[in-house]
């Protein structure tokens, strides 16, 4: 068998990138208008849409950049400091 330097598609190619986070985006679903802008602007694709069309953040991989909070037109996302644990 030839050793080929080929890498296969995998989630978490750089590990659990959620560990990188200093601030955590927290969605206030009472304010959310389901505009999907947070989903669209997330560079890491860690926001998925629930059956009801609400954005759900995958904290295992969210790096906490805060673009979603910045771009949310109704300020429904707040960046909360991660507590050491």
């Amino acid at each position: 068998m030839v050793e080929l330097p080929v890498a296969r598609p995998s989630v978490g190619a750089a590990g659990k990138t959620g560990n990188w986070r200093l601030f955590k985006p927290s969605i206030d679903y009472r304010k959310c208008i389901k505009c999907l802008l947070c989903w669209m602007y997330c560079p890491d694709g860690v926001i998925s849409l629930s059956g009801k069309g609400l954005p759900v953040i995958d904290y295992e991989y969210c790096k906490g950049c805060g673009i979603c909070a910045e771009e949310c037109p109704v300020k429904a996302i707040e960046m909360v400091k991660e507590v050491e644990g």
């Binding site: 030839v2 050793e3 080929l4 080929v6 296969r8 598609p9």
Partner: peptide
């Protein structure tokens, strides 16, 4: 060739290899 592009089972050819992985390719 298993080294040729595959759209059904995609792979990345020549990605970064850390020191623990790199030598086996040269040795082969």
């Amino acid at each position: 060739s298993p080294a040729a592009v595959d759209f059904e089972n995609p792979f990345a050819h020549g990605a970064l290899a850390f020191p623990k992985d790199y030598p086996k390719f040269r040795e082969d």
